[in-house]
């Protein structure tokens, strides 16, 4: 809740810095709008590329211990949403809290699985090396990878059914196997909240089933998992909650309640032309 300014401060209005102080208080008041119990809460977030907004006024609090699907058409800003939450791209406005704290404080409690296509799989590394990268955040700077980290990486590989491939060069893995390596890498991060970018993209049926089982296991262990997902068919089966996204949040909540035709129509039935026009105006004006 936004608290009103304490009366003791009113006499400072003559102070030239008063506006600044007020602004600051305003920011802290906004921070209180975050639900501290939520594993991921986003308040009033707008993200722009080249000053052109691609995500507008995102307000969202993820429910704890649920599997959440993030669904929307191409260019809806799904990946951007994850990256902006993780401070990987700057936010034009708004704030993000993980368990009530900024990302940099909660970094170790948040696991991230980028899109498989985002890396070069010809990189000279074995599956185990890639999985061990999940531990790098725990290892102090300049320290080598420790034995217990490699053990953890090996465990994670066997949890995704890839124990036999630990020493396999990553370029020699199939698409599904590469995706499992990425998931194993997230598992060794041992997080409370996971953000996954299209883990089901381009994988075989066996891998898809294995990933779903893994996600459910994570949820049953009390983790919160947010998954960018492409296949509308499987949404009701896979996810407890769903976020329908198309530059803005169209609807968010339990899948059974909001995953219906009218909401999907709103999400996929073309962009809001007004938002598109507004984005162009913002971009054009900003460049002057």
């Amino acid at each position: 809740m936004r608290s009103s300014a304490p009366s003791a401060d009113t006499n400072k209005h003559a102070d030239p810095f008063a506006t600044m102080i007020l602004t600051r208080r305003d920011v802290s008041a906004i921070a209180e709008d975050h639900d501290a119990a939520s594993p991921l809460s986003i308040h009033d977030m707008t993200v722009a590329y080249h000053r052109k907004p691609v995500l507008w006024d995102i307000d969202y609090a993820a429910p704890a211990g649920k599997l959440v699907g993030i669904v929307g058409p191409n260019g809806a800003g799904k990946s951007t949403l994850l990256k902006a939450c993780l401070d990987l791209i700057p936010r034009a406005s708004g704030s993000v809290r993980f368990h009530g704290e900024p990302y940099r404080v909660r970094r170790r409690e948040v696991g991230y699985v980028p899109q498989r296509e985002s890396v070069d799989w010809d990189f000279p590394a074995r599956a185990l090396d890639v999985v061990a990268m999940g531990c790098y955040g725990r290892i102090p700077w300049c320290w080598p990878v420790r034995r217990k980290d490699r053990e953890a990486a090996r465990d994670a590989l066997s949890r995704v059914g890839m124990a036999d491939y630990a020493t396999r060069q990553i370029s020699k893995l199939s698409g599904g196997q590469q995706q499992r390596v990425f998931l194993a890498r997230a598992l060794v991060q041992d997080a409370r909240t996971y953000l996954m970018d299209e883990p089901f993209a381009g994988v075989d049926a066996a891998t898809e089933a294995a990933i779903v089982t893994l996600l459910r296991t994570l949820r049953d262990n009390g983790k919160t998992v947010l998954v960018v997902h492409h296949d509308l068919q499987t949404v009701p089966e896979y996810f407890d909650h769903v976020v329908l996204l198309n530059m803005r949040i169209v609807a968010a909540g339990p899948t059974a309640e909001i995953f219906n035709e009218s909401n999907l129509q709103k999400t996929y039935g073309g962009r809001l032309t007004l938002l598109d026009k507004a984005a162009h105006v913002v971009a054009r004006e900003g460049r002057r």
């Binding site: 970094r107 991230y112 090396d129 990268m133 790098y136 320290w143």
Partner: peptide, 22 residues
């Protein structure tokens, strides 16, 4: 020698590196 681990993760997956605090 000192930054082997950091150079490796940044070369392979810069987004993951940044999200891990490197």
């Amino acid at each position: 020698g000192l930054f082997y681990k950091e150079l490796r993760i940044c070369a392979f997956d810069p987004d993951l590196a940044t999200s891990r605090g490197i």
